[in-house]
Design a protein around this nucleic acid. Sequence first.
DNA 1: AAAATTTGGTTTATATTATAAACTTGTTTA
DNA 2: TAAACAAGTTTATAATATAAACCAAATTTT
Lengths: 93, 93
Amino acid sequence: MFPKLDPVLHSELRLAVVSLLAGVESADFTYIKKQTGATSGNLSVQIDKLSAAGYITVEKGFKGKMPCTTCRLTETGLEAFRNYVTALKEYIS
Amino acid sequence: MFPKLDPVLHSELRLAVVSLLAGVESADFTYIKKQTGATSGNLSVQIDKLSAAGYITVEKGFKGKMPCTTCRLTETGLEAFRNYVTALKEYIS
DNA sequence: AAAATTTGGTTTATATTATAAACTTGTTTA
DNA sequence: TAAACAAGTTTATAATATAAACCAAATTTT
């Protein structure tokens, strides 16, 4: 009746990050931070978790001389997001 | 951009309980337990939290000789649920 | 050019949560 | 009457989310 909700996505900030990434080709740390309003520490941790789950890829490079961390949603991540949304609808409809 | 999600409702089991109660006039502990597949302990704790938040009322009585705990969604609870659903849609659409 | 500030994060500590395991009280069944 | 079951509650534990503190490099200020 109530399907299990993916615990990786059932987190306010991680869900926001994935939702954001689902709409763009890629986004860097600073941008995600601004859009979500998260603190750096929290965002850093949650990005690690999404990465560990294989839901996003994280690429560290530089923009000019400044470090820049770029995140991208993987196929796995997109599918997990879709599944989560489907499951969630059982709860809220 | 991403609205804050009510932490009382952003919990798999509590959300299931509220979702369930939103569709019926009332439901007792055993029924909720069956429908959600939760363990008694977990359900007991989460019902307390929903009750403490004023989202449900809990009435202890007997069905025959057996104790029976009946739960009902309050107006506050229903409104919180609606708000949660609205907020969530910002994340998943 | 040295000092102070900002950028872009990471690491660590803490407080909260979710969950299961163990327990309680009373009832039914063998 | 002893064992098993029902309906929960309480307590312990493991996982989470979050913020606070920290760090290195770049930039700006004096």
